[in-house]
């Protein structure tokens, strides 16, 4: 479903991803683990089209279509969703307004009918209750003054409402206590389906106890250097990333 082939990405003039190849079949959840600075967030940004993250070589094929030539909003309309490692504050735009604007923009781009305000409100109420979020919080400007954990829940709420098909979770576990982690993971697991693909980026094995991956990849120095089943995550937890660091190679 997602086929990344020999992807090179530079930020400024600095090459960060150096020939990354990865295949995520429909319905699967793949974990990307790796040391700090390996390029995990860069991968998420490159897939979602962040300006400044330039693909200099390689290809990204999403459901038979090249992603790299599309604008970020076009990619979103085609189902790409990045849950940010550090969600951004949007002053002056209430969370509810924000999500409805995004949902309807995506629907317009896909030629679907927009969702009405009452129908949307109903969806939000259900989704926020499932994530144990205070509904009143959604009337406040998006992420402004939210705690780290609240911002992460807000990301998952948006994901639940936008119903993307390529889900990229960048360190969604950071800033979450164990209860929040469980609730958020349930939200993510609810979205697992045969017509979706997921990339779960994480530093720690902990999250993978809740979101069980089909495959685990180690990203180090801009490339996938090892791949395996869920047991690889446990091995990394025990041994650390040392043997994947450039000086060890």
């Amino acid at each position: 479903m997602l086929k990344i082939n020999n992807l090179h990405v530079s930020v400024g003039d600095k090459p960060i991803l150096k020939g990354l190849t990865l295949d995520v079949p429909a319905g699967e959840v793949h974990a990307i683990m790796g040391p700090n600075g390996a390029g995990k967030s860069t991968l998420g940004y490159a897939l979602s089209g962040r300006p400044g993250y330039e693909a200099t070589e390689g290809a990204v094929d999403w459901r038979g279509e090249s992603l790299l030539d599309l604008e970020p909003a076009e990619r979103a309309a085609k189902g790409v969703f990045l849950s940010f490692q550090y969600p951004i504050e949007i002053p002056g735009v209430p969370a509810l307004t924000f999500v409805r604007t995004a949902l309807n923009a995506q629907k317009r781009a896909r030629g679907e009918e927009e969702v009405s305000a009452p129908a949307f409100l109903k969806q939000v109420k259900a989704a926020s209750a499932a994530l144990k979020m205070d509904f009143d919080m959604l009337k406040r400007p998006l992420n402004v003054g939210f705690s780290g954990g609240e911002k992460k829940r807000m990301e998952i709420l948006q994901m639940a409402l936008l119903e993307p098909s390529l889900l990229i979770l960048d360190e969604t576990d950071s800033g979450l206590d164990i209860d929040a982690l469980r609730i958020v993971s349930e939200g993510v697991n609810a979205l697992r389906s045969p017509d979706r693909a997921m990339l779960v980026i994480t530093h720690y094995q902990r999250l993978l106890d809740y979101i069980k991956p089909d495959r685990v990849h180690v990203l180090a120095a801009g490339r996938i250097v090892a791949s395996g089943g869920p047991e690889l995550a446990h091995q990394l937890e025990a041994e650390g990333y040392d043997k994947y660091l450039p000086q060890a190679a």
Partner: peptide, 26 residues
């Protein structure tokens, strides 16, 4: 804010609409 603009586009809001929304919010 460039990062806010990208965030909004990532969620599906086209660049011009994102700019207008942020400007109005300002």
């Amino acid at each position: 804010d460039e990062s806010a603009l990208f965030y909004m586009q990532q969620r599906g809001i086209p660049a011009d609409e994102a700019r207008a929304l942020l400007t109005q919010a300002f």
